[in-house]
Every structure is written in C-alpha cells, then in structure tokens.
C-alpha cells in the first residue's frame, strides 16, 4: 500500500469522519480523476440525481485553510504510522495477514444500521 493509500484508508476511520468536510478535500488531493464529468452526470441521472448533486458527491476543491490543515494532518499521520511500525515490528506483527475481528452489535453495519451509528 502506498502512503497515499494508507492515508486514504485512515481517512475512512469513523473518528476522522467526525472532522466533517476535512476528509473531502483531502480525498480530492490524494486521488486522481478517473471519471469525467459527463460520464459521472450520466451515471448520477440513472439514480435521479441532478448534475449539481453529482458534482457535490465528487467535489474536491481545496481552500488555503484546507491546504494547511492537510499538511498538518499528513505530518500527524506520518508520525502515527512510523510510530506504529516501530512498535509493531519487534512484536512480529508486520507481515502477518490481518485477521480482523471487530465486534459489531445490531445496528452497527450488520443486521441493520441504527441512528446511533451516525453519532
């Protein structure tokens, strides 16, 4: 996984999502355009979306404030990742295939999604 991919994955974490709009412009910075506007609008129209709504879903403009925040976040994540690698290596964790065993309860992902999941 590249550093860009690592950061994107971290961005998916629920805690980070609470930072609201932060993740969206980061995503735009980190990703390359793979869908042209016309095609995206056509796909959105199939689900009843207006071109504006499609644009909003894929919006990736970055402000000056956003740029500074982004750079700060990259530094923090880099430190976290480097720290994790330094700690995990002696424990022999690196190189193992992850056996994820997160515990979910009803209303969190499986079964069905609950209002409390969005808080």
């Amino acid at each position: 996984m590249t550093w860009r991919e690592s950061i994107l994955y971290e961005l998916n974490a629920a805690r980070i999502q609470r930072l609201g709009g932060l993740k969206d412009w980061m995503r735009g910075f980190l990703t390359t355009s793979v869908l042209d506007t016309e095609k995206a609008e056509m796909l959105g129209a199939q689900a009843g979306l207006t071109p504006n709504e499609v644009g909003a879903a894929m919006d990736a403009r970055m402000s000056r404030r956003g740029s500074i925040l982004f750079k700060l976040t990259v530094v923090v994540f880099t430190l976290i990742i480097v720290g994790a690698v330094v700690l995990a290596d002696p424990l022999g964790v690196i190189g193992q295939y992850p056996a994820t065993n997160t515990t979910y309860v009803p209303g969190t992902r499986y079964g069905s999604i609950c209002p409390k999941d969005f808080r």
Binding site: N12, A13, A14, Q17, R27, T108
Partner: peptide
C-alpha cells in the same frame, strides 16, 4: 478513488 466511504465504518 472518487467517492467518500459509503458505509458507516470502514470496510
């Protein structure tokens, strides 16, 4: 690569 995560938590 384009859209934000759609699920409540990361896959």
């Amino acid at each position: 690569r384009v859209l934000p995560p759609l699920q409540v938590y990361p896959w």
